[in-house]
Structures are given as structure tokens and as C-alpha cells.
Design a protein around this nucleic acid. Structure first.
Lengths: 138, 138
DNA sequence: GTTTGCCTTAAAGTTCACTGTAAGGTTTAT
DNA sequence: ATAAACCTTACAGTGAACTTTAAGGCAAAC
């Protein structure tokens, strides 16, 4: 499969596919007689994995490290497994951070919901003071 | 509170605090007699919010848009609430993407776990063929 | 058979979000 | 009173991750 087809199938720019290959995020792609890239399912799977991980916020650098180690241990399933576990834990930590922010926003929303009279947190207090609807400091 | 104290309290570089203010991510900070920034709880709350959202992967640009709209609707709690709801939904969508990748990795890990004999997915098949442990195409 | 559109590489350019620097004023410590 | 340690602005520099460009080879269509 040539680069254009892969690019369209995976929705990744051709330029990015070359960039990833040049930088060791995906294995070297076999070439045809004219020197054009001819992707196999192996490279396509790697590209999909890289896309998913990039999308999840993993840096290119740490993916290069991961891929390098993973291929180095092609003989050891245990080593590969623990590398994947590492990526998993990394993403899980990211998800926990995201959840904290979601909870914070959810609290803000509830707070808007539950009070017909606006609840004066410090921010709102300051806003009202600026509008001369309040005169005194606490 | 001066910029150094805020920087230390919130663990955000002074340079970043100025950058955020210059670019409209947090409101203008009041100045003392010497022209130094003198933060109130209002700006500190905004900075914390921006930090959380940046951490959750929200771009500076969309945060500028959010802050601009939010302040524009300082008279309408309903409008502000729906803006926060928008941010919430955005993060929720991001979390769902992250979960997809987590599930993918969890599957990979289970698959390592459950099979003493390696399960041949297309990638592993290709690897084994390269090592001459398999001879034929499917 | 030549134009159109694909492919190649190497290298320069772009964008984002800071981060550091230069030039200078202010405040605290000795 | 002078150095050290803060603060200011404006603007240049950085690093990450692409993205575009330049220069040229190959291939399907007319």
C-alpha cells in the first residue's frame, strides 16, 4: 500500500508519516522497485498505535523511547508487556488529572444550578464591588 | 500579593503569569505605587483555573476565547454557565478519547496475560515470519 | 512523448506556548 | 550609599512537532 492510501486510510498527513518514520516512531517501510514506500500491515499498525498515543497526549520523544525499547526486546514478551504497562499507567495518571479538572468544573456548574441567589465566592464578590453594588471590604 | 509570591504559591513561573496576563488569559492585575503587580484573589482564582485547563490539554487560544466571552457576559450568569458547560463537555470528549486508548492498551495487556502461547495477531505473525519461525503466508 | 500528478530527500519555515534577555527603575540589606 | 535582589516592558530566542519548499525522479493518462 503506498503512502497516499495509508495517509487517507489512517487520516494522517503523508508528511507526518514520513516524519514519524524518519524519527523512529514507526519501523522503516519497505520500498518498491522505484524506491516508493510500500506499507505492510505491520507499519500500519504501528502508525495507528502512534496516532492513538499522540492523540492521548504522549510526547514524540517518549514514544521514540518506547518504540526503541519495545523493538530491542522483540525476544522478550515480558519486557514488552511491562513497557506497555508503563504507557498505560502514564495515560491513567493523565486521566486522573483530567478528572480533577472535570470535577472542578462540575462543582462550578452545580453551584450555578443550586443557588437562585448568586452565591458570592471571592471572585463574584470582587466583581460586584467593581460595579459599586457592594461598598465594604470584609 | 506580588508576582513572586503568587508564582510560588501556584507553582507557575513568573514569566508565564505575565504572559497569560498580556494575552488575556487572566484579567489585568492591579499595580502598587511603584507599578508592580499586586494580585488579588480574583486574579489568583483565574490563574488557577487557567492552569487546570492548560493541564487538561486546553489550548491557550480557546482559553482566550472562553475568558473573553465569560467576561463579556458578566451580567448573565446563564451565559457564563453555558460557557463553563461547554468547557466541561470539551474535556469530557477528551476523556473519552483517552479512555479509548486506555482500553486498547488494557486489551493488549490482557492478551499478553491470558495466553501462555503467544497469540498471533498480524503484527506478531509478521515478526515471527521475519525470524524464520514461520514459513507460509495465510 | 509530454504533461500531470505522484513519489523521493534534505532542509528551511511555521506555529504554539512559553522562556530568556536587555535596559532600566525600585526596594531591602549591609 | 551601594550592592543585591526584586520589579517593569518589549522583544528576541527556544523546543516540540510538524509543514512547506526546492529540486528532481517515476508513472499513468491523453
Amino acid at each position: 500500500m503506498n503512502i497516499k492510501e495509508v495517509s487517507e486510510r489512517l487520516d494522517i498527513p503523508k508528511e507526518t508519516l514520513r516524519y514519524w518514520e524518519n524519527n523512529g516512531l514507526i519501523p522503516e517501510v519497505p520500498r518498491n522497485a522505484s524506491g516508493y514506500r510500500d506499507y505492510t500491515e505491520n507499519e500500519i499498525k504501528w502508525a495507528l498505535f502512534i496516532k492513538a498515543m499522540r492523540n492521548a497526549g504522549m510526547s514524540v520523544e517518549s514514544l521514540i523511547d518506547f518504540v526503541t525499547l519495545y523493538r530491542k526486546h522483540s525476544d522478550s514478551r515480558e519486557a514488552q508487556k511491562s513497557l506497555i504497562k508503563e504507557q498505560y499507567d502514564h495515560l491513567l495518571a493523565q486521566r486522573n488529572e483530567l478528572d480533577k479538572t472535570l470535577n472542578y468544573l462540575a462543582y462550578k456548574l452545580d453551584h450555578f444550578e443550586d443557588h437562585v441567589m448568586p452565591f458570592l465566592d471571592e471572585e463574584e464578590y470582587y466583581q460586584l464591588k467593581k460595579k459599586k453594588m457592594l461598598d465594604e471590604d470584609k
